[in-house]
Design a protein around this nucleic acid. Structure first.
Lengths: 146, 146
DNA sequence: TGCAAACCCTGTAGTTACTATAGGGTCAAG
DNA sequence: CTTGACCCTATAGTAACTACAGGGTTTGCA
């Protein structure tokens, strides 16, 4: 199949596939006489593997490592794979916690302007200005006292 | 004060300050005879404003808009500022939801390998490979049935 | 006076995972 | 024989910095 069909079946676009090839995540396929890439079923499976991992927000570097294990299944223990997953889960967990703190801070700031005001009189802007000149700010001081 | 001191007081480093100047977020300061940037108190306040907004994960584009309101306080209504905050809150909220789904998927996948295995026998890797060849995958199919 | 450390300057390239564009070649249908 | 849909390479852009390379300046100390 040509790159366009692989792209459609893999749920990404052709540029992305060429990018993965350049990055060494997909092997360079055979070419037709005119230089078009010609892919086999195995390429589709590898692309699906990559896209699936990407949908789990794994980095291309991590995916490269997983692909290496996939291509050279070894009798060594799989601790490394587990550690990779654990690190990924840890990162996501931390991101969630930090975004939740952020959301609280933003909601606190947002509450400073509930009724319609003028720009010159906007509680949000005033709070931001106050924080800039060294006053403690509601958004970072008040809510998350951890 | 010189750029190094501004950086220390503003909690960022000198490169970042030069970057903000290039991006038009900080006005170009006066220069000494030898070309060193010389900052005033007002610069520190503006930098603090920017860094505070950044700590709320606002984009530089949004911060630029807030700075404009700050510099030209107008009698117009502040709807725009409120809308900016609401959009920011919405984005963060969606990110949290999507990361929470992700975390569940990763935990489900992680559960496929609880005991120590060999790489060739790792439940995580097998699950990823299965998903790549078209089988439904636990991580995306099982948990979040919304 | 000489020197070294600690500053500062500009300009450019790197980061992530793509996406978009320019400027071309190929192929099948009508 | 032309039109449209496809393909190719190479390069630049995205966000918000960060990290050089390759230089100049200032300050303190011997």
């Amino acid at each position: 199949m040509q790159i366009g069909e692989l792209a459609k079946r893999g749920g990404c676009d052709a540029e992305t596939i060429r990018y993965y090839e350049r990055e060494g995540l997909l092997p360079a396929p055979a070419r037709s006489a005119s230089g078009y890439r010609r892919y086999e079923q195995a390429h589709l499976e590898q692309l699906a593997f990559i896209r699936h991992c990407r949908s789990l927000a794994m980095s291309l570097a991590d995916i490269r490592r997983l692909l290496a294990y996939h291509q050279h299944p070894s009798p060594a223990p799989c601790d490394d794979i587990n550690a990779l997953l654990d690190a990924q889960i840890g990162r996501i967990h931390q991101q969630i916690a930090s975004l939740q703190r952020l959301e609280q801070q933003l909601l606190t700031l947002r509450a400073r302007c509930d009724a319609p005001h003028t720009v010159a009189d906007c509680g949000i802007l005033k709070t931001l200005e106050g924080a800039a000149s060294g006053e403690g700010c509601v958004c970072h001081d008040a809510p998350s006292r951890d």
